[in-house]
Design a protein around this nucleic acid. Structure first.
Ligand SMILES: [Zn+2]
Ligand SMILES: [Zn+2]
Ligand SMILES: [Zn+2]
Ligand SMILES: [Zn+2]
Lengths: 159, 159
DNA sequence: CTTGACCTTAGATTCAACTCCAAGGTTATA
DNA sequence: TATAACCTTGGAGTTGAATCTAAGGTCAAG
């Protein structure tokens, strides 16, 4: 039996977080002391471990609520239900990663075209790319010539 | 010269969004009509295009403010400043992608171990992984045997 | 009997980037 | 002149996951 502060310290979370989980139904302490203090049992601690593990894997608290409700009543759920939660998450994640990779490629192209030196940004290829409609990026060493050691290899090859 | 609705329609944004950009200093219309309507010039439209392009590449509005203030006063900034903004974003993005890939791997391992069938979740390997402390995932076809066509190749190989 | 560490609650705040609302003013058309 | 389609403003709401605050109750030690 733990009080909130003990459980928090044991699992490296804030007491605020445990109160938040209580309020939102993820983890209600199984009892209260006479004076109203939350008292967490070993089962509660196990449930907290479940929550923290699921969080570490990338589930949202909403997902975790769903998993916990299945967990509490396993025999009335099928593998399909559980795997469904995971697979939806996986698909979201893949979409998110694809989007970020797209951003990354775009930014990488911008970065490669800029010398990054102390020269005036008047002809900076990054700003020019953002000003213009075209998706082509002009390498700076055409418009804005200086020590080629500044440029990354990607861009040097064109100059 | 465009009124807010025209500009919004031309660039497929909501009028609310343009008002938001005005309020937050990203895009202030260069004039107002007598009755107080926002009037956007061609330069304003160009600035909006800059904002939208930067957004599409993955910059936050805060980043964009910074880029715009450089853009407005290019000669007093260096390529290093501009490239700095891009490279910081790139580093953030890489960290984020790495984190999401870690989540993805974890979820993929969970998903692979579960049959996803209509069988009771009582011995579902996903739930078991979340209950247990170990990071190892037991494939279901050891505890919970049924039509092996359910399993993915990753998991079948162990059964 | 008081200090200090702990606990309680409801409710406000944070971040981003909008999005929506109410209540009212303007303008073009029928 | 009325109707609809615009526009204005300030301010509230959204999502997620906390984090923080204020005002107060509890408990063990000295
Ligand atoms: Zn340069
Ligand atoms: Zn540059
Ligand atoms: Zn199964
Ligand atoms: Zn399963």
């Amino acid at each position: 039996m733990y009080r909130i502060g003990e459980l928090a310290q044991r699992y490296q979370v804030k007491t605020d977080t445990l109160r938040f989980y209580d309020k939102h139904g993820l983890l209600k302490p199984s009892s209260r002391s006479e004076s109203g203090y939350r008292i967490y049992s070993e089962d509660d601690a196990q449930r907290l471990r479940f929550i923290l593990r699921a969080k570490a894997i990338g589930f949202s608290l909403t997902d975790i609520s769903e998993l916990l409700s299945i967990e509490l009543d396993k025999s009335n759920w099928a593998c399909a239900d559980v795997k469904g939660v995971v697979d939806i998450k996986l698909a979201d994640l893949e979409a998110k990663i694809a989007e970020l990779n797209y951003f990354k490629t775009s930014l990488q192209r911008l970065s490669d075209a800029c010398c990054g030196g102390p020269e005036s940004a008047e002809h900076c290829s990054i700003l020019e790319a953002l000003e213009s409609n075209s998706s082509a990026i002009k390498c700076e060493n055409q418009t804005h010539r200086h020590d080629p050691s500044h440029y990354t290899k990607n861009c040097q090859s064109k100059g």
